[in-house]
Design a protein around this nucleic acid. Structure first.
Length: 563
RNA sequence: GGCCCCAUCGUCUAGCCUGGUCUAGGACACCUCCCUUUCACGGAGGUAACACGGGUUCGAAUCCCGUUGGGGUCACCA
């Protein structure tokens, strides 16, 4: 490498997204990743993904993979990090903190050696008692190092040799600490605010504060962009950097994304919705046994207990409630487009100005800067997101819509896909695109197409009454007459041919009011009042199904009317 | 509660740094009307905000102070 290249490399912007793999990537995390990616890429820099799995109790490999998958789906590619789908690799690995313990241990030694850190043997119970005592006295709890540092080296070694559980604490220097932040400006924490925090846990793993500082330094991170909840932690990171002789990265703390009611977005929100519905309706046992009885009881009693995704989904379906989308994967399942999610997420906390709202990630990378990041938390407005998604879905090329819908169907509605031929699906997609807000709409509002003719039920009493029973002639009369008209339609059975025949019938029998015959027909073939345009609907169903459903409808409604 | 941060329509935000062009702009939502075979889309209008109180100034959404309100954080979680 030439000297000038080395010089420019040293100045290259490096950002990182460092999630802890407990649970799923939620939208707040996704936005952090997006901004980090955009900031680096807009400046010819590098974006690193690092997995902060230092909590052995909470981390899981499955969650790590889930994060990678979600990020990749969003189109947020990382230049360095775990290898997945063509992303990752790099010279600064490993990128899982659980694999970097020797590095941390080396740095712990340095800190102990230089007197910046010390071993402490307090038990969790003792610490708890000290916190309780401080609270009882109405004073802020700060760790008191007196006892720990009074131990001689020999005493410490003896305790360690005896296997006494020990943590390492950082000896925080006295004095106020001023944090400089590119988004929030400057803030000074008074002396004494930061106490001697733990940097190595009893299990030998580093705490977040320690690992994040070491890794950011070793990986050459120049800009730390993270959520505002980390703002106060920055003071800890700064004193650690000073003690370890690391350069200080530039900080930018981004506003949180919160629920519409202002509460923090949480994985528990789904359980919250379900619990509320269950309690409001006084449901005592899990409907359809969707949750094991013993778990059900514990779940109802303890708001900290969470249902699995499968259980929650089943229960939501049984209660007919919609679960709030929290995680990136939730939005994917719900049929949102990744580019729309990115666009919308970017608008929560940042805007390009000039009344521009619709843009892609390339534009974001080009225009994103810290100056335009707002300081206030954003309430996540799903309705506006839905509107954006609608615009994108209805506005995309039809071929793309068909392809995306197919993929979505195969991933989430295999049974539906199995019932329809390719030609039927193409026709359905063509009819659905203009009226779809998400990729899910096609499947959600056309279930009747994927049912066997014999499975259609006319159980919507209101619809049956209004569109089949009432009127003179009644809707059912029209349907009966239409049965003959349709039977007489010459092949091919196309939307256009059906339109000619049905419109002609409406002219002669309903004063040209298509609605008088379309709605009864719709109810007859679908069992409900909602479907794609009636001609398309019948064309997709085909002649045999259409006639069969009409016959069954006439028989069923006549029978129930006379009984 | 201590400490830190923040404050423009219901929501996301533009404007604030470099006071006047702001009778505060856009988007989503909402309301009205139109279109219409259901659903949805679309079209035309409309309602709607500078939290409050003091300053500074000829002039403040923009600068300063206070109040109130909101958020964050106080773990061997990250």
């Amino acid at each position: 490498m030439t000297e000038s290249a080395a010089g420019s490399a040293a100045r290259q912007v490096v950002t990182r997204f460092a999630p802890s793999p407990s649970g799923h990537l939620h939208v707040g995390g996704a936005r952090s990743a997006l901004f980090c990616w955009a900031f680096a890429h807009g400046r010819g820099g590098r974006f690193i993904l690092r997995i902060e799995d230092t909590d052995q109790k909470r981390s899981s490999d499955a969650a790590s993979v889930g994060f990678l998958k979600d990020l990749a789906w969003l189109g947020i590619a990382w230049d360095e990090g775990p290898e997945y789908g063509g992303c990752g690799g790099g010279p600064n690995g490993p990128y899982f903190q659980s694999q970097r313990l020797d590095i941390y241990n080396r740095e712990f030694e340095r800190l102990i050696g230089s007197g910046h850190a010390y071993c402490a043997f307090d038990t969790p119970a003792e610490l708890e008692a000290m916190r309780a005592d401080a609270k009882a006295r109405g004073v802020a709890y700060r760790y008191d190092r007196t006892r720990a540092v009074s131990l001689s080296k020999r005493e410490v070694d003896a305790l360690l040799a005896a296997g006494t559980p020990a943590v390492i604490r950082f000896r925080t220097p006295e004095g106020p600490i001023t944090i400089r932040d590119e988004i929030l400006g400057e803030a000074t924490l008074p002396a004494g605010e930061v106490d001697d925090f733990v940097i190595r846990k009893a299990d030998g793993f580093p705490t977040y504060h320690f690992a994040v500082v070491v890794d950011d330094a070793l990986m050459g991170v120049t800009h730390v962009l993270r959520a505002q909840e980390h703002f106060n932690n920055t003071a800890k990171h700064m004193v650690l950097q000073d003690a370890l002789g690391y350069p200080r990265p530039i900080y930018g703390h981004m506003p949180l994304i919160v629920n519409p009611d202002g509460s923090k977005m949480s994985k528990r929100d789904k359980d919250k919705v379900l619990r509320k519905a269950v309690k409001e309706r006084g449901i005592a046992t899990p409907p359809g046994g969707c949750v094991p009885a013993e778990r059900w009881t514990r779940w109802l009693a303890d708001s900290a207990v969470q249902l699995d995704l499968e259980e929650a989904t089943a229960l939501a379906a049984a209660l007919d409630v919609t679960l709030p989308e929290i995680n990136v994967d939730d939005f994917r399942r719900s049929g949102y487009l990744p580019e729309v999610l990115c666009n919308f997420l970017a608008l929560n906390g940042w805007s390009p100005g000039q009344n521009i709202e619709k843009f892609d990630n390339a534009f974001l990378a080009e225009r994103f800067d810290l100056k335009r990041v707002v300081k206030t938390p954003a309430k996540f407005d799903r309705v506006k997101l839905l509107s954006f998604n609608c615009d994108a879905v209805t506005g995309m090329a039809p071929e793309r819509y068909v392809a995306l819908s197919r993929a979505h169907g195969h991933a989430y509605h295999p049974a539906f896909m199995a019932r329809l031929s390719d030609a039927q699906f193409d026709a359905l997609a063509a009819a659905s695109q203009p009226r779809s807000k998400t990729l899910e709409d096609l499947f959600r509002s056309n279930r009747f197409l994927a049912l066997d003719d014999s499975e259609i039920r006319w159980s919507d009493a209101k619809a049956v009454k209004k569109h089949l029973i009432e009127g003179n002639p009644s809707g059912l009369d029209h349907v009966r007459a239409l049965r003959g008209v349709l039977d007489g339609v010459a092949a091919p059975w196309t939307s256009a041919a059906l339109e000619v025949a049905i419109t002609a019938y409406a002219q002669s029998a309903a004063e040209g009011q298509l609605g008088k015959v379309a709605q009864p027909l719709r109810v007859a073939v679908s069992g409900g009042t909602v479907s794609p345009p009636i001609f398309d609907t019948l064309a997709i169903l085909g002649r045999d199904s259409t006639l069969a459903r009409i016959d069954r409808c006439v028989a069923a409604v006549t029978a129930s009317a006379t009984s």
